[in-house]
Design a protein around this nucleic acid. Structure first.
Lengths: 219, 219
DNA sequence: AACTCAATTAAACGTTTGTTTGAATTATTT
DNA sequence: AAATAATTCAAACAAACGTTTAATTGAGTT
């Protein structure tokens, strides 16, 4: 009878359910949401094949659980950091960028998991091209976007609303792309570039984006 | 006997084969490479289900044909534009950014297809997270990356090799992300932002990236 | 007109997918 | 201890997938 107790389950959080969430995140990070089968997940979680449908209802709801568990706290932290910024002092634009970037870096470094895996999963969420994923991610994003646009325009008054929105999008893209692919840079550059740590990537991202965010307008 | 004539086919370019390539590009742009089935492709191309395997050998080789047809000319054009730049004059950094961006914008605007669809397909190639795709795309990229790194460091001598590599990656990410998602910005911004044309997006991208590329280093 | 070979077709193949079922097991409550 | 609910399990399900096969068509050549 796996239907009636759906609601009582969502609060119980069985050990199996948590293991499924954890293993799913690991596998999704490496291969994407669609490529990972329920059989691979349940085998790695040492659970039965039917466990996902029992605990989450469907694969899609499992994905939703993984995604929301990941992006929710990050967006909350972004808003919290943004509120702490003194928008009057010089360097406030860099603080805005940091408020957008650092919650992701923090979460990646804090977790017991490996940095890269967390970054890849986060990148798959933020810059997904699957509407089923983006609809989940973008649900919370309008508030974040609006707050960051307001902050940016307070610090850089010469930026129009349209341009501010675009620049937030550019920032998200640069971050998501580099978070996912930075480990490949040593190969593509044929050994000429090596990123020593996630922190060094973060520093260069902040440097690059701060300049872009505060750039003057063309005309 | 679909094996022996494989090479004679690749030069004949049947009407069916071209239709398959065209339809595949359209469908891949909208839904991604994996989500589009051979049945959907062949139905839209008014061809038989077996046509893809006959003309291309497999679905994977069809994807490879679509990808290489798309990214090859763009990278060639990038290198051509880069060679034309006078690296001594001021504003050379912006020219470098334009040499990276404009080949994509040109190709999107030139094609008979709709802008957005082309942008989405291009974005799926450039910033793919599927190793089967990235291995195709990145095959030509080391040369492009190296040339752009060299040009950037000539114009901005204070940038180290590592940082130059990263900034190219940031640029690619900002471009790919915004090319794919810019039509969603009007929804996410809840009507507060609307991108009038692909050209306006291009102009803001150039403005943003030029500032980021030429930014000073942190210490 | 007979032959040749590329191209198309309909049908079936074997896998893999997410999901469902009903019984067995374990845990919790009465 | 008995009864009830929650969880696990093996097995099977239908659907969708890429691929293959063998027969058929059609144009170009000998």
């Amino acid at each position: 009878m796996p239907i009636a107790q759906r609601e009582s389950i969502s609060s119980s959080t069985t050990a199996t359910k948590m293991r499924l969430l954890d293993v799913s995140g690991r596998l999704f990070a490496e291969s994407g949401f669609d490529s990972v089968s329920l059989r691979l997940i349940t085998e790695n979680a040492e659970a039965n094949l039917a466990a996902v449908n029992y605990h989450f209802g469907s694969k899609e709801e499992l994905i939703a659980a993984v995604v929301e568990k990941l992006v929710g706290p990050v967006n909350q932290r972004r808003l919290a950091l943004l509120r702490q910024i003194n928008l009057d002092v010089s360097g406030a634009c860099q603080s805005i960028v940091e408020a957008f970037i650092d919650p992701v870096i923090e979460a990646a470094s804090r977790g017991d998991e490996e940095d890269q895996r967390f970054c890849k999963l986060m990148s798959r969420c933020i810059a997904s091209r699957d509407e089923r994923i983006t609809s989940l991610v973008l649900r919370q994003f309008p508030e974040v976007l609006a707050k960051f646009v307001d902050a940016l325009r307070l610090v850089c008054p010469w930026i129009s609303s349209d341009v501010a929105h675009m620049r937030i999008m550019f920032m998200a893209g640069a971050m998501a792309h580099s978070l996912f692919h930075y480990d490949k840079l040593v190969i593509i550059s044929e050994g000429r570039c090596e990123i020593s740590s996630l922190d060094s990537l973060r520093n260069e991202l902040v440097q690059f984006l701060s300049a872009g965010m505060s750039a003057g307008t063309s005309k």
